[in-house]
Structure formats: C-alpha cells, structure tokens
C-alpha cells in the first residue's frame, strides 16, 4: 500500500499536515477532472460524486455553491458543510471551484475513510474551520497578510513527494 492509499484509510488519524498536503496533491493531480466537474456543476447546477467511503453532493443556489455529504452506507446527509460564492466570471469560478473540490475531497476522506487497520471514532463530522484555499488558514483567522507570510514559510514538499510516490 502506498502513502496515498494509506491516507484514504486513515480518517481520524490523518494529521493536519497530511490533510494539507493531500489538498495540494489533489489540486495538482486532479486538475483536469476538477475542471470537467466544475463545468458540469456550473452548467447543471448540481453534481454528485464519491470519494473514499463518502458521497458528495454539490448544489448551486442563489449564486452560492455548497456541499453536503453522506457515508456510502448511510442515507443520512450532513448539513451543508462549506459554501463559496460564484462571481459569474466563468474562468475565475472554475479556478475557485477546483480548490473547493480539493477541499471537500479532503474533508470527506478525513470523515468517511476507506476501511483500514485503524479503528475510527464515530463522533460527528469534523472540518478545519478555515479552508486551505483561504489565506486565513495559515494565520488561524488573524488576517490574510499574516496568512500569506505563513504560507510562504510552510513547506509540505516532503509529504507531497511521499504522496507522489517518490
């Protein structure tokens, strides 16, 4: 089992560094898929997909895109977990939607992992408050400028190489 496959099974045990690296990895490696998905979502107003052990349901409503999710073996959807505003400028919205997809993929992998060796807690859906595409993530809500400085200092190269299998 390579590191990426292992990450899909870790769930609760996926560290915050691993989650951030996964986000960056997905953003790069799924660029083409995310672009197609974003176009479908903007055209149809909704999109369903599965990742790890979860299904994600995206919906466009009143100029906002949101997502809710469910474990594949459950009928119960979560409330809306995250949302972003669309600007109406298509190429810019596609870029933002790609990031939104990568973030939601990581959220769902964290909460609904594939079956693995590690026992999982069953304590409700958990997310990092500031998404990785928001500079506030890097400053823990203390502003985008500080976030930018901290982002430059953050080095996930080692984990990204592990995810790429190098």
């Amino acid at each position: 089992m390579n590191f990426l496959e292992e990450c899909l099974t870790l769930g609760d045990w996926l560290s915050q560094e691993n989650r951030r690296a996964l986000y960056k990895y997905f953003l790069r490696s799924n660029n083409g898929n995310y672009k197609s998905q974003a176009n479908l979502l903007v055209t149809n107003g909704l999109l369903n997909k599965t990742i790890a052990n979860g299904q994600i349901y995206y919906l466009v409503k009143d100029g906002l895109v949101n997502y809710s999710t469910r474990r594949l073996d459950s009928d119960e959807f979560t409330p809306v977990i995250r949302e972003i505003k669309l600007t109406g400028i298509k190429f810019y919205d596609i870029i933002r939607l790609k990031k939104f997809f990568a973030q939601s993929d990581v959220d769902v992998i964290r909460n609904f992992p594939l079956p693995g060796l590690n026992p999982q807690s069953d304590s409700g859906f958990g997310i990092n408050v500031y998404p990785y595409y928001d500079l506030n993530y890097y400053s823990d809500g203390k502003g985008k400028l500080l976030g930018l400085v901290n982002r430059i200092k953050t080095n996930d190269r080692e984990l990204l190489n592990k995810l790429k299998g190098r």
Binding site: Q16, S123, G124, F125, I127, N128, V129, D140
Partner: peptide, 12 residues
C-alpha cells in the same frame, strides 16, 4: 502545540 481551528458537527 497549537491545533488548527476545528469545527465538529453534532450527531443526530
């Protein structure tokens, strides 16, 4: 150690 700000939803 400072953890990321975290949000957790209650279970039904």
């Amino acid at each position: 150690h400072k953890f990321e700000s975290d949000r957790r939803y209650s279970k039904t």
